[in-house]
Amino acid sequence: MSEHLHPVLDVRKLVKTYGQGEATVHALRGASLTVERGDYVAIMGSSGSGKSTLMNILGCLDIPTSGRYLLDGVDVSRLSDNQLALVRNRRIGFVFQSFNLIPRTSALANVELPLAYAGLKARERRRRARAALDLVGLAQRAGHEPNQLSGGQQQRVAVARALVTAPALVLADEPTGNLDTQSTADVLSVLDRLNRSGRTIVLITHEPDVAAHTKRLIRLVDGAIVEDVRQRPINDHERAVLR
């Protein structure tokens, strides 16, 4: 089982700069990080600390200026455009702060979308999408379009969409940033359950309450990792308590 020999994420000296000349912005200045299977990591940092940039690179949505990124031991920079699409589809589930559901399309169709790109048959797709919606407690809302759902519901649809392909890695960029307390608790409980079932989760957050849910806390300042604290062991399946 070769995949157990490699960490899920292995990032080395990641550098990302935007712009050129005097206007150059250094979003990441040599961040290195490994995440093992089953871990639950929170990344914190002030605005502009480079955490979103890091997340986008981890999600294969962006490419680093320099440094290496191994996903399950595979160097992502060597993958072609189509292979990257495959990686995003099969290995990674991405949850955005702004939900990013496709407008004028039902919740069910939104959740089905990654499965459609994976080439599943319609019947199987529908079954799995319904199961995923059921998991986030929105089975009754399958036919609703995004603008008919509350923010919390939209984010849970987005979480269902991220987990429907059963990816080993779930990345969430401030998943609760736009949500009220109740919705935050709903979304976090879904993520907690996902982690208990063995998925690796990395999320960005501003809120200490949310960070307290996780097993490991990383702080970013000015594009570099300044703190890396293990809060609970990886194989701890106890339910975390909200402070």
Binding site: G59, L61, D81, N82, A85, L86, V87, R88, N89, R90, F94, N100, L101, I102, P103, L113, P114, Y117, A118, R161
Partner: peptide, 16 residues
């Protein structure tokens, strides 16, 4: 364009 970004993030190949 945003929708295209979402589709690509979900793993849609360029061809599709």
């Amino acid at each position: 364009t945003r929708e295209i970004g979402i589709r690509k993030a979900l793993g849609a190949p360029k061809r599709v």
